[in-house]
Every structure is written in structure tokens, then in C-alpha cells.
Amino acid sequence: MSETAVPEGAGPTRSDAVETVESVVRQRLSEALGGRRGMIEAAVPTIFFTVLWLTTRELRTALIVSVAAAVALLVVRIVQRSTVQFVVNALVGIGIGALFVTLSARGGASEEEQALAYFLPGILYNAGYAVVMIATILIGWPLVGFMVGSVMGDPTEWHQDKQIVRLCGRLSWLLVLPCVVRVVAQGPVYLSGRSGALDADTAVAVLGVLKIVMGWPLQVAALTAMVWVLGRNHTPLERKPAVEAG
């Protein structure tokens, strides 16, 4: 967000006294997604895992290299003194995937089934996220509204303005749409690979491609749609005044 500079000690002008809901949500969404670099960093480990499994058939090697790639990205972030949040998120995702692989192995699953298990956490996460997001929209408390509330001085103050609630509801639908698409596309492939209806290696390859294609590109598409919605309106955002002592 760009704001007009105000000399120190000067009173607020109308341009900086009024902040729009749209500008706040744009900033918060950009921070949450991590920009293009953050989304690419999230895709890199999956690329390594999928390619190595399909070419070497060494599940452990695929996991180790994908972790090493994420750690290398983390080191670069640390050296550059930039936020490590998004690389850490990728590492956590790999760790959960590895846990599912381990649990699958302990359950007597074949290596092909273990490789499929690597993708299960992502499907479950998107399904759970979609359910929660849709629930908040249906009950009239869309999750995006709390982004607005975080800068209004009251996490629920925004809900008193029906115009803001409607805007946040539309934005929440756009935010949850990629999750729904991922589950609808990836879920049947995973189940087909597990049941034997689809060759396990083919299922792993398809899941790897879908995870990458439906990762940051799909998120960028959703964000573009949200920016378009935000660019059409200018809903004033009135911060809740601080309570004076005494």
C-alpha cells in the first residue's frame, strides 16, 4: 500500500486518515502467500521428490533430496536475512509427508503405496481448509474478515458493516476455490492409485504434476481474481479508536 508521506508532527490528512478495506486485504494476502518467490519455494521439494522417485525408484533418496533442497533454500533465506516462514512451511509439509510414508511402511504398504502416501497430507489439508473456510462463509463470518479486523483494533468490529461482510465473503470464496479444485482433481487420482485402478507410478506422476500445477499457478489465478474484485471497490476502513485511560 502506498500512503502519502506526512511530516512528523503534522496532523493526519484525509488521504491517510481513510484506509480502504481493499488495500488492507491486498497487503495481508500478499504477506500470507509470500509472493512469487514463496510459492516457488513451496513447489521445489515436490518437483525433486516426484522426479527422483520416478527416475530412481528410491523412495528414501527422493525424500532426502527434497528435504536437502528445502534446507538449501532456507540457508539462502537466512544469508539474505529475509523471512524464512515460507521455506519452513515447505519443510513442515515435507516432514508430514515423510511421516505418512513411514506410517504407510509400518502398515506393510508397498513402496508404490508409500510414494502415494507422500501426497495424502496435502489432499487432507486442502479438504480440511476448504471445509473450515466454507463453514465461516455460510455462518456469515468469512475468514478474510479477520484480516480486516486485525487492523481495525477489534477482531470482530468489521462484522457490524454488512458491506464489508459481503466483500469478505466474496474474497473468501475466491480464496477457498483453489483448495476445492485440488481436492476434486487429486483425490480421485490418489484413490485410484491405492485401489489399483490406476498404475501406482502413473498416479504418483500425475499427483506430482497436479501438485505443482495447482500450487502457486492456481493460487496466483485466485489472487488475480481477488485483486480484480478489490480494484472495483473502495470501502472505507474506519479503525476503532483506542480507549483513553482515566
Rank of each mutant, 00 (worst) to 15 (best):
S2R: 14
V6A: 05
P7Q: 13
D16Y: 08
T20W: 14
E22N: 12
V24Q: 10
R28Y: 15
E31T: 12
G34C: 04
R37N: 06
E41S: 03
A42Q: 04
A42D: 04
L54N: 07
L54R: 01
E58Q: 11
I64K: 00
S66I: 08
V71L: 13
L73C: 06
L74N: 01
L74H: 01
R81F: 03
S82N: 10
V88E: 06
N89E: 13
I96M: 10
G97K: 04
L99Q: 07
V101I: 14
S104P: 09
G107T: 06
Q114M: 10
L116Y: 07
Y118W: 14
L124D: 01
G128Y: 03
P142N: 06
V144M: 15
M147A: 15
V148I: 11
D154S: 13
E157R: 13
E157A: 15
E157K: 11
V165G: 10
L177N: 10
P178Q: 08
P178R: 09
R182F: 01
S192Y: 00
R194W: 02
L198Y: 00
L198A: 06
A200L: 08
D201Q: 14
G208W: 06
K211A: 11
I212V: 15
W216K: 01
P217M: 05
L218N: 07
L230C: 08
G231F: 02
K240E: 10
A245K: 09
